[in-house]
């Protein structure tokens, strides 16, 4: 994705800011045509991604950078939706090892990747150049939103 993000936020790896990230993602998702439950699930996926970075990537150090970038997804012929990229400077891991655990193994923890993959339509983990990881997530909007004006073309703005 080379196009400039419509929203780009930098936050520190402190769990106190998770609620703010959820509010942002939920609000933008709503504007892009998702219903309340879908908005909550998208915010949940972002929350889980941030928690994994804080917990595993940065070993709970609260002062490390995380970037959230957001685009409306208008890739034809896909319907409208949302594309989110979450980047960090945490230790790099082999993306193929990032899998959700078996759900019949009922125990605390380890559900984040499963939740992300369950909620989002496209999920890609990759190493960034230099250091850190990049998580790209796409959620296609429900069909009812396809008739809405594409936000990227809404240059003059509308309420």
């Amino acid at each position: 994705m080379t196009q400039r993000p419509h929203i780009r936020v930098e936050l520190l790896s402190n769990p106190i800011y998770l609620s703010g990230a959820r509010e942002l993602v939920g609000s933008v998702s709503r504007r892009l045509g998702f219903d309340d439950l879908q908005c909550s699930k998208i915010a949940l996926a972002v929350d889980e991604a941030l928690c994994n970075i804080i917990r595993h990537g940065y070993n709970r150090q609260p002062d490390k950078p995380i970037w959230i970038s957001i685009w409306p997804d208008v890739t034809e012929p896909q319907p409208l939706g949302i594309r989110l990229v979450i980047e960090d400077e945490a230790r790099q891991v082999d993306p193929s090892t990032l899998k959700g655990r078996a759900l019949d193994d009922i125990r605390p923890g380890g559900l984040g990747v499963h939740i992300i993959r369950e909620v989002m339509d496209e999920v890609t983990f990759a190493k960034r150049n230099g250091k850190g990881m990049r998580l790209t997530m796409v959620k296609h909007a429900p069909h009812t939103a396809c008739t809405r004006k594409k936000p990227a073309q809404d240059a003059k703005g509308s309420p």
């Binding site: 998770l18 959820r22 929350d47 889980e48 928690c51 605390p108 559900l111 984040g112």
Partner: peptide, 13 residues
């Protein structure tokens, strides 16, 4: 109003 997997893990424990 909201719960993530850490809340879920707390309830499983």
């Amino acid at each position: 109003g909201y719960m993530d997997s850490s809340g879920l893990a707390t309830l499983v424990e």
